[in-house]
């Protein structure tokens, strides 16, 4: 664990007209860790990450990146500093081929002056290589992204952020729209990104997904910080209790069972070390939950 946080916000307040979206929120994100941002709908998760990624600017409070006070006026500025955000909609254009999507906004160019052009061969080659690293073999980089599965799209978005040298990777509900199996795949990529030394901010309203991969947990409620814990300070149940009422617990336990069952099956398969860790966590969680 690094002593200094790579990204830190202090006493952030954000007003939209008379609506207080965030009130006095502070948070720290460390490199090589997964920081989970939890909270129900309307808790202010999206507003906070939009401030972190430069889409919005805070009304009050300070934002530090790599120890330096910063103010981003656009997502591009944040991106240039190494803060990459993978949005729920993934910021992928369905009608466009994979290789065009992968380099969108940061196209490699070759040539000079008016003949400066998009280095297409490089783009196609690189996309194949980078996705192969995540275990996805795309035969045809010219395939439209709209024809791919949810997990595949998510992996393209994450691979893109990692490839472009993100230091902080913000993932906005990456598992929300996915099935259990696909969600497991995405959790694996999160651990991979962490292992590569990135500071990962993982936004979710699913405490099981969060507890499986998280090192640090920030729970927001109605625009305020409900609490900040590191993993050894909080159990899964406490976290769930902090987040939600008893009604939701039943539904959640259902989902957890499903995930754990899938995970048990997965163990017999080829698993990277990182993935095995995730699985262990989930199994442990299930036991605790059954008690």
């Amino acid at each position: 664990m690094t002593a200094e946080p790579i990204l830190e916000v202090q006493h952030i307040t954000k007003l939209f007209g008379s609506v207080i979206a965030l009130s006095d929120v502070s948070a720290k994100v460390y490199a090589g860790e997964v920081t989970c941002l939890l909270g129900d709908n309307g808790a202010g998760k999206s507003t906070l990450i939009k401030i972190l990624s430069g889409v919005h600017q805070q009304t009050e409070g300070d934002y530090y990146f790599e120890g330096e006070k910063v103010k981003f006026n656009s997502p591009r500025e944040a991106l240039e500093r190494g803060i990459a955000t993978v949005y729920q909609d993934l910021s992928l254009i369905p009608l466009m081929p994979i290789w065009r999507n992968f380099f969108l906004g940061l196209e490699p160019v070759k040539g000079w002056g008016p003949f400066k052009r998009f280095d297409i061969d490089f783009a196609k080659r690189t996309v194949r290589q980078e996705l192969l690293k995540m275990g996805i073999d795309i035969r045809d980089p010219g395939q439209a992204v709209g024809t791919m599965s949810g997990g595949e799209r998510q992996s393209i978005a994450i691979a893109r952020a990692v490839y472009f040298g993100a230091k902080v990777l913000i993932l906005d509900e990456p598992t929300a729209a996915l099935g259990v199996k696909q969600a497991g795949v995405v959790l694996k990529y999160i651990v991979q990104a962490k292992a590569r030394g990135l500071g990962v901010i993982f936004i979710t309203h699913n405490p099981h997904h969060a507890y499986a991969v998280g090192d640090r947990f920030i729970i927001l409620k109605r625009g305020r910080t409900l609490g900040i814990w590191s993993k050894d300070e909080i159990t899964r149940e406490d976290m769930i209790r902090a987040m939600s009422g008893a009604d939701e617990l039943e539904a959640l336990s259902h989902e957890l069972d499903e995930l754990a069952r899938r995970d048990a099956a997965k163990k017999q398969l080829e698993l990277a070390q990182a993935e095995a860790e995730v699985a262990d966590e989930l199994e442990e969680g299930e036991k605790l939950f059954d008690e």
Binding site: D89, S91, P94, L95, M96, G105
Partner: peptide, 15 residues
């Protein structure tokens, strides 16, 4: 292409 496909998404990645 990206602006026409999804202007918001395009803006998010810096287009």
């Amino acid at each position: 292409f990206a602006t026409g496909g999804d202007a918001n998404a395009a803006r998010n990645v810096g287009v």
